[in-house]
Design a protein around this nucleic acid. Sequence first.
DNA 1: GCTATTGCCTGACTTTTGTCAGGGAAATTC
DNA 2: GAATTTCCCTGACAAAAGTCAGGCAATAGC
Lengths: 303, 303
Amino acid sequence: MTVGRYQTKVSYMTPDPVSRFRRFSRAVTSEVGALDQSFLGRGRPLGTARVLNAIGQGRTEVAAIRDYLGLDSGLMSRLLRGLEAEGLVTTGPHPEDARARVAALTPDGEAEFAAYEALSDQRAADTLARHPRPEALLAAMDLVASALGRDRITLEERDPRDETSRYCLQEYYAELARRFDTGFDPQLSRDPEATDMIAPRGAFLVAFSDGLPLGCVGLKGSGGPVAEIKRLWIAPSARGLGLSKRLMAEIEARAKPLGITTLRLDTNSALPEAVALYRGLGWTEIDRFNDDPYPDHFFEKHL
Amino acid sequence: MTVGRYQTKVSYMTPDPVSRFRRFSRAVTSEVGALDQSFLGRGRPLGTARVLNAIGQGRTEVAAIRDYLGLDSGLMSRLLRGLEAEGLVTTGPHPEDARARVAALTPDGEAEFAAYEALSDQRAADTLARHPRPEALLAAMDLVASALGRDRITLEERDPRDETSRYCLQEYYAELARRFDTGFDPQLSRDPEATDMIAPRGAFLVAFSDGLPLGCVGLKGSGGPVAEIKRLWIAPSARGLGLSKRLMAEIEARAKPLGITTLRLDTNSALPEAVALYRGLGWTEIDRFNDDPYPDHFFEKHL
DNA sequence: GCTATTGCCTGACTTTTGTCAGGGAAATTC
DNA sequence: GAATTTCCCTGACAAAAGTCAGGCAATAGC
């Protein structure tokens, strides 16, 4: 969409992409490096602190931690022994393969991990507070984080009534209100019954990148062979990453096992990228099939 | 949720600023960390490579390098001797204080530094190439880099005809063309003679952040006590950082020694932030003082 | 069953990094 | 011109990080 409308002009010395990227790297190195230094300040060497943090983040398999931190098996073993000796970590055999081991934090370890987290949070809050335009900065940071973490975006089926889903839906409504000349009132558009978007009638998917919800899509079933796609939303910071295609493919895949053979959806010409998306994904335009006041384009796809 | 083989704890709350900041940190850590790893891959330990890089970046004074890298004096000394033994660096007494020492790269050192730079460039180019929307990503990166590097933005007096100045002016014209309903043709607006914006008649300032030009402003003198402020431009990625105020303050400070006592400027109501800026800086609105077709607001300030 | 492989641990290293107490030469102070 | 300070070097350590070759127990393959 229209997030950054830079144009590469053939003008004199337009700063080139690589040097802009490297300037970015230099700028964040000190900030992020400072965050990493929060590992210090608690009297523990970096390696040990990194292992503690990896476990605190929920990584339990020793092999996975070693892989994540790029550590040698011997070194890893010693660091773990050290943490065990400190009473911060316990290890035991992996339940499914007794050769492998899993690690977990003790209550003391949890407290220590929380202390590291608090340090990092504090540092982040300080940096943000020092800044005159935190919202613009955060929006740009979201975009960078989504882009760099693109390969780690995961799709999850969620209850459309839970907190995260409601956040996505609210953002979706707000976007429509901005884009439609007439505004948008969710009351006027028949809101799908939540149970229609939960198995076995339907589904609701949310896309997550490192815990942040970046998009959603709903499948509103009726129990019969015809269902509707609803509420496709992508966060501004994640547009252009192919996420809508991924969400659509996944929701179609989830429709089949529910006995659904025909999908329909409606959309609005004020959302040209959506119309283009559906066309590109092999949907065919059909006549109006409801009396919702907002949509003016209607599509169908047979599975 | 399961990411690959590990379990990852994530919070599904509505995103708050600190967690967004920290998500950004995590996302760039791997990327930037990878850039740092380019230090490796050439068979040299990190410390040595960092010193070589600091010298390559133009830091010559040993004390400055030590300070920049946060190294102990003893360790620094040893790292330098190692680089000297490799034939990559020479050191000598500081010309102004023979107690201090300065370091410089030998031709071999230059080659080695260039090799490190090429590695980093390559890595940056690869990441960009992998991305579907590099321009949006770069725009966001510029914004983040400008924001985080805000305290390191410097103002420099430049010839308005040099490459960097012409880049700023072109961006300025392009911005006007976007903002004015009628478009903007630089030909129609009397372009100041470049010599009017060079001492002793005037001045031209460019704001740099880590080598990237982020803004400019011109002082167009006539030899007499009245001069005009022209061409105030701030890059989109640097807006909201107080840079325009800094540029205006600096150009006013440079006007005084040139014998200038009255400053004038014209602007357009299509640029409301500019109009607000001048009002806030103590300029008073006056009658039209030229027949330029574009401006509709005119200001004056006595120094 | 027997053999090979996997996953982790241990011991015995080396390299790298960090620390600290002098010491010599140049500069500064008085 | 002597005393003091500054800047760096060196030596002597110590801690941390990284490497590598076995070794043991659990698993997989046959």
